[in-house]
């Protein structure tokens, strides 16, 4: 059996208006990966390819050891997928949907479904059209989670939710991961959500994966150095510094491969290091996307 729940190797898909370019992505079993990217970056296309809903032009896709899209039926028995643009039947009740899913999945966990109803504050007899956006997302998630899938794929699950609903959903996702056998891939442009629950992070922009690695190691690599630069001082281009912005005597250097020696290197040239700051995932995301676009444009 493969070590990975998801493997994408050299995957590409060309549209007249957008190209997904040579995507490599690996999600080990039992891990949560946050796929972060701005709107239109290719998150949803990547997810649709790995579910077999869109066929890649080239490259290999394996999900839970199954080749996609050829073996999508076998794979989807063990995949729970919910997306921001997925809708339930408005005229039917949540109970009808629960019965519908239960009639398909023999592993439907009715006890867990009742527990989720309670936790999410949902009523089974309520029609979908009477639910708020947050309740609809929770209802969709309930239908996915109570199947007890081995892999959860969530495309923008928290988009448009209020902070309380977001917290409830993220808490439930974290609880799901108590079962070591489960893996989660979730896409978002909300870096706070990803930072909160992910083990792995992948950045995607303009159809390319620009970074993918373990979250802790990743956060640890990035630093922002605030410098005071005396007039007439020229600072060297250090490897690992991806952005250098100077305004008068003050400068900010952004490092994507920080090493303590960087501060010494600047100080040896006459600069004074005011502070070395860790960066939030959002700051890293923006810096990374800007750097990637500059590189592509260069």
């Amino acid at each position: 059996m493969s070590d990975f729940a998801i493997e994408l190797r050299g995957v590409g898909k060309k549209y007249p208006w957008f190209t997904l370019d040579n995507i490599h992505l690996e999600l080990p079993h039992g891990q949560i990966m946050g796929l972060i990217g701005p709107n239109g970056a290719g998150k949803s296309t990547t997810i649709r390819i790995l579910l077999g809903l869109v066929q890649q032009d080239h490259g290999e896709v394996r999900v839970l050891g199954r080749r996609m899209p050829e073996e999508q039926v076998a794979a989807k028995w063990d995949i729970g997928f919910a997306s921001e643009d997925m809708r339930l039947y408005e005229g039917m009740t949540l109970e009808w949907h629960m019965n519908f899913i239960r009639s398909i999945y023999p592993g439907w966990d009715a006890t867990y479904a009742q527990l989720l109803l309670k936790r999410f504050g949902l009523r089974a007899e309520q029609k979908i059209k009477g639910l708020s956006h947050g309740q609809r997302v929770k209802a969709t998630l309930l239908l996915v989670l109570a199947r007890r899938p081995r892999l959860l794929v969530l495309d923008e699950p928290t988009t448009g939710l209020d902070p309380v609903a977001r917290h409830e959903i993220l808490r439930e996702l974290t609880a799901v991961m108590n079962d070591d056998g489960r893996s989660v891939l979730f896409s978002s442009h909300n870096t706070q959500d990803v930072e909160q629950i992910s083990d792995q992070i992948a950045f995607i922009d303009r159809g390319r994966i620009i970074d993918c690695m373990d979250k802790e190691a990743y956060l640890d690599r990035w630093r922002r150095l605030r410098l005071e630069v005396p007039a007439g001082t020229t600072l060297p281009d250090l490897p690992g510094i991806i952005q250098f912005r100077q305004n008068g005597r003050l400068a900010v250097a952004t490092a994507n491969a920080f090493a303590p020696g960087m501060a010494n290197a600047y100080e040896s040239q006459g600069a004074r290091v005011q502070s070395i700051d860790t960066m939030t995932l959002e700051e890293i995301f923006i810096a990374n996307v800007e750097h990637s676009r500059e590189e592509v444009g260069a």
Binding site: L51, G52, L53, P69, Q72, V73, A74, K76, W77, I79, G80, F81, A82, S83, D85, M86, R87, L88, Y89, E90, I104, T140, V144
Partner: peptide
């Protein structure tokens, strides 16, 4: 139009089925 097809295609069926 109402995007329920995405919900159905998340189930274990192929596009042909």
């Amino acid at each position: 139009k109402k995007q329920t097809a995405v919900f159905l295609m998340s189930l274990p069926v192929s596009a042909t089925q």
